[in-house]
């Protein structure tokens, strides 16, 4: 058996059936919990997580059809695979189970080999669905989804401390002039995939994609222990990912990519901007402007990552390559000390 063990919930009003199915499931290497009717099962499903449901149809209080309907109506449970195990009479009842979303129907007494195959395939489906959800969340940003779930959707922002990161491909216009449009899109897709990975694996979210660049936020909507540390770690990861990509590109006789990164830390106003019909999670404030200017400044100073003083102060032992004291930044009246990492 190659399956990872799953946790199954067995729902049956008959004690002999519960014992027998539990035994079979445990012999297959999985964990089994039992419920004696649909109502008990729904209570258990709301408080624990299961990988698969083995569901009887004929039950008092709440029967299998009602359980299937309740699962369908619940967005958190809709993806839970259900195997109906019953000796219910009539093809129409079996058809009804499938129509209500059951994965499959196993007649009782349940054949052990058939059960093993169906459980494996049900668990595999669950695993694929979970994987799909994780991939989706990576791009729709889990944090924004969570924030929406917890506090609801409302246009308007709130103040928070955050680190803002801008990243841009150097000389992208020149680079893309020599490429077919399809190849340009391919290149951007690769770039974004790598950059998203660097941002999300460090607890940040990508809030804007800007042609050949992006803006990422660390510390909003979900707080982080050290927003500057996370943003700088993401910045370094972005550079090492681009180096790996360049290694492949050079081998294929293609031009290297170069990126610049600016990071600033401070108070921002973050929230949903737009209209009730179309809105985006975004972030505004002088910290955002500064991060964008620092990114532009990487080109003038030939730096990989430029950070402001507030970001540097929060870092735990940063390796500063060079400090540019009292630098005049466009859009800001007072000069800044900025640091190349």
């Amino acid at each position: 058996m190659t399956d990872a063990p799953g946790h199954l919930l067995i729902v049956d009003d008959n004690k002999v059936n519960r014992l027998l199915l539990s035994r079979n499931v445990e012999l297959l290497g999985h964990k089994a919990s039992v419920a004696e009717n649909g109502r008990v099962a729904m209570e258990m499903l709301s408080s624990q997580s299961f990988d698969l449901l083995l569901l009887d149809i004929e039950m008092p209080e709440m029967d299998g059809f009602q359980v299937l309907e309740a699962i369908n109506a619940d967005p958190d449970l809709r993806e839970l695979p259900v195997l109906v195990t019953s000796s219910v009479e009539g093809l129409d009842n079996i058809v009804r189970c499938i129509e209500l979303g059951a994965e499959d129907y196993l007649p009782k007494p349940v054949n052990k080999t058939l059960l093993s195959a169906r459980v494996s395939s049900g668990l595999e489906k669950k695993r694929l669905r979970d994987e799909q959800r994780r991939l989706l969340e990576r791009f729709a940003t889990t944090e924004v989804a969570q924030d929406l779930q917890e506090s609801g959707f409302a246009i308007g922002g709130k103040r928070a401390n955050a680190s803002v990161l801008f990243c841009d491909i150097r000389g992208f216009t020149t680079l893309s002039e020599n490429l077919a449009p399809e190849a340009t899109i391919d290149l951007l897709n690769t770039f974004y995939t790598l950059m998203f990975e660097a941002v999300t694996s460090n607890g940040g979210i990508v809030s804007l994609m800007l042609g050949d660049g992006l803006m990422a936020l660390f510390g909003v909507p979900q707080p982080l222990n050290n927003t500057a540390q996370s943003a700088v770690a993401a910045g370094h990861e972005m550079h090492s990912m681009i180096e790996m990509l360049n290694h492949d590109r050079l081998a294929d006789g293609e031009e290297s990519l170069r990126i610049g990164i600016g990071i600033a830390t401070g108070e921002v106003v973050a929230g949903y901007a737009g209209t009730d019909n179309r809105a985006t999670y975004t972030c505004i404030g002088s910290t955002v402007n500064l991060a964008a200017r620092l990114e532009a400044e990487t080109q003038n100073t030939g730096s990989r990552i430029l950070v402001d003083q507030e970001t540097l102060d929060l870092l735990d032992g940063a390796d500063v390559q060079k400090t540019f004291g009292k630098t005049q930044i466009k859009g800001f009246s007072d000069p800044f000390d900025i640091h190349a990492l």
């Binding site: 008959n14 004929e58 039950m59 008092p60 000796s87 009782k108 007494p109």
Partner: peptide, 16 residues
């Protein structure tokens, strides 16, 4: 319903 369910349970176990 109760009548059908009781018969159904006995059938199911007897088959086992």
């Amino acid at each position: 319903d109760g009548y059908r369910r009781a018969a159904h349970s006995i059938k199911s176990n007897a088959n086992t």
